[in-house]
Design a protein around this nucleic acid. Sequence first.
RNA 1: GGUCUCGUGGCCGAGUGGCUAGGCAGUGGUCUGCAAAACCAUCUACAUCGGUUCGAAUCCGAUCGAGACCUCCA
Length: 490
Amino acid sequence: MKDLYIYNSLSSKKEKFIPIEKDHVGIYVCGPTVYSNVHLGNVRTFMSFDMVYRYLLHLGYKVRYVRNITDAGHLENDADEGEDRIAKKAQIEKIEPMEVVQRYTVDFHNTLNRFNFLPPSIEPTATGHIIEQIEIIKQIVDKGFAYEVNGSVYFDVLKYNQDNNYGILSGRKIEDLIHNTRLLDGQSDKKNPQDFALWKRAEPQHIMRWPSPWGIGFPGWHLECTAMSTKYLGKKFDIHGGGMDLKFPHHECEIAQSEICNNSSPVNTWMHSNMLTLNGQKMAKSTGNFILPNDFFTGNSKHLSKSFSAGCVRFFILQAHYRSVLDFSNEALLASEKGYNKLMESIRILETLSTSSITSDFNVESWKENCYNAMNDDFNSPILIAELFRVVKFINQVKDGSSTVNKKDLEIIKNSINVFVFEILGLQNVNESANQYKEKLEETLELLIKMRSDARANKDFKLSDKIRIELDEIGIQLKDSKVGTTFKID
RNA sequence: GGUCUCGUGGCCGAGUGGCUAGGCAGUGGUCUGCAAAACCAUCUACAUCGGUUCGAAUCCGAUCGAGACCUCCA
């Protein structure tokens, strides 16, 4: 088995992956803010890390995968103009903040289930870790890297930068940040615009609020990930993932908080999944440029010509490398769907293949190695899929009789398909195919009913009886009535 | 404006200093009662202009174009 190499955003290069604890991997991924339905762009990020998680498990690691739920809301604007996003939504809809959180958390889980995600080991919530967050703020204040103003606490970025590198992850220079920070509306309590909030004073109308040593307020948005990752994975853990758009400032701030609190950089390998674009622009709720997972299942969207299965969408996403921008279009999805169906069809054929040949026209071992090489090279799923299509071709050749495979190789192919297609890419979706078959069965029966009624109209009772009797024999009853024929499956 | 990334054939999308990515679409063939599928063969390519090199689409520079971040964001 070759080594796994992962692209580390911190060093900007692929590095050999060596876990801190032998055979164990700790991975933290920034989860969703549950103030609205997740869109396909969100799904892409989590899917990238679902694949990473699956592959690490396949390699035999004991993985603790922590993916949080941000339910405390983030600041919408900077400084005092900020408003908690969850709280805002709640006011609009006249319901409790936690009701919003609950609704969209359920939606999030339902969506990921539909796409055949593995659940993380721990899914902590920000509101469940207020105490831990307050403790971290205390430590940072005690060490002199945070200051309190009017019931809010800010991290002193300039002081931190004297002995540390604020910008180590994002490649930013503090001078550039100082010169290029935009002028903000309203008053700010911050000493410097680059400083970020650890704790915010809650205005009277602010619904989500907790007591703290600095008064009633709520935690700053970078803090929760530091609190939860430290609690469940330790001061230093293996992999931290998230969307590219979280690199700065969110992840940069996490590093700063941990450096002060724990005297060490929190993460060995930073992984960032790239954006999904629609019409060449990043998918985002705020701009209205997005497509919801449910739109695919119904097909009701101006962006779609028809409905698509979850498996097909998953396949479409994994056909691009997680670090590349992927542009969504109906045309691209249609192309993926055909490829996906071709792959699945050949897997069905594979199950029916029997062999008595002693030779194989396909180097199965080297193919399998290529598959592993692809995954070991920074989870290169597009290359893996390309390799899968090589074996698809071979399977079809064997079926046609133009190639042969021996028993041993056939078994290896079956096992490997199981591993790579279902286990690692996670393309299997049992419920989906069951539903699909149910639909097809209904449509087929409608067709038979139509043929029978045509036969009866033509007085071809021999044919119409044959259809009714033979369907009855396989457990499907036809029931004629004045309004038409229905069926019942026993 | 600053920082960074990217620009591949009709579409999507890998990879790379010299050797077929792959999928979809197209073309020719095999097969076929018809159709489809499948198989075989095949056409489209590396933004532009310079430079380095025996050789670059791959490295360097400039130009043009696109995007991300700098404010909540996956």
